[in-house]
Design a protein around this nucleic acid. Structure first.
Lengths: 123, 123
DNA sequence: TCGAGACATCGACATTCGTCGATGTCTACT
DNA sequence: AGTAGACATCGACGAATGTCGATGTCTCGA
């Protein structure tokens, strides 16, 4: 509850002398919790090796890849690859499916598209 | 070079025993330097306060904002805001223009769109 | 039942990051 | 000239990140 008629802030600004510009148009601003959610997903994309993992996974024949195929082309050890995969899975970008001994990864349908649209105006 | 009629890898794989899946389809993989460039731009978006800065700047009246208007709604001190702005400018996402005492920031036209398209298939 | 292998998790380490007080630089006004 | 104010830069601090060896867990075949 904000109370006391502070519903909109749009005209509440009393410009006395020289405030340089408009005070951020009140509540159109991205909320902190929403920003944290978005930032977490972009953080998953903020590592070159994770982008290469996405590139490999999304371009593979069956749109599925297992860890053993990622370690070599990336030049990373297995624990590191697993670590990156976990981050991408936790971000909702990759899907993990365990079949027998191997774990297969695929891009979650629409995940990257939804992230991309959040960058565009009017999202 | 894969060479020797490996136009498609589908059947080129000589499964001797149990290789789990295809070996990452060779050179379709995102190059490391290119991945680093992309990752650096996503890293600029991987902080909630920077996303809120982008939200404020892109929704302001004149599509321009100065530092003094950002500090208060973000709840951050001025050096911190300047730091985030520098990161966004260095990433090529924001444009800085100094007019008199104030510095005005605006979103570089096409910057976010180009980043968004890099997320989509066939980019 | 046992061992090999694929993958996840843990612990450690160097590096990077976000934040802010202190200080520097530059512009405009008196 | 001198002062006030907006913004950048510096230095420091705790927290988070990327990497990997060591180890754990689970599945499959012998």
């Amino acid at each position: 509850m904000s109370a006391t008629t502070t519903d909109t802030v749009e005209l509440g600004l009393q410009i006395t002398d020289e405030t340089c510009c408009v005070p951020a148009s009140g509540d159109k601003v991205l909320q902190l919790t929403e920003a944290e959610l978005l930032a977490a997903r972009f953080k998953a994309l903020s590592d070159p090796n994770r982008l290469r993992i996405l590139s490999i996974v999304s371009s593979s024949e069956e749109l599925e890849t297992c860890v053993c195929d990622l370690s070599e082309p990336l030049g990373l050890k297995q624990p590191t690859v697993s670590h990156h995969l976990k981050i991408l899975v936790d971000a909702g970008i990759l899907h993990r499916e365990k079949r027998g001994v191997w774990a297969y990864f695929s891009v979650v349908p629409g995940a990257l598209e939804s992230l991309a649209s959040s960058l565009l105006p009017k999202n």
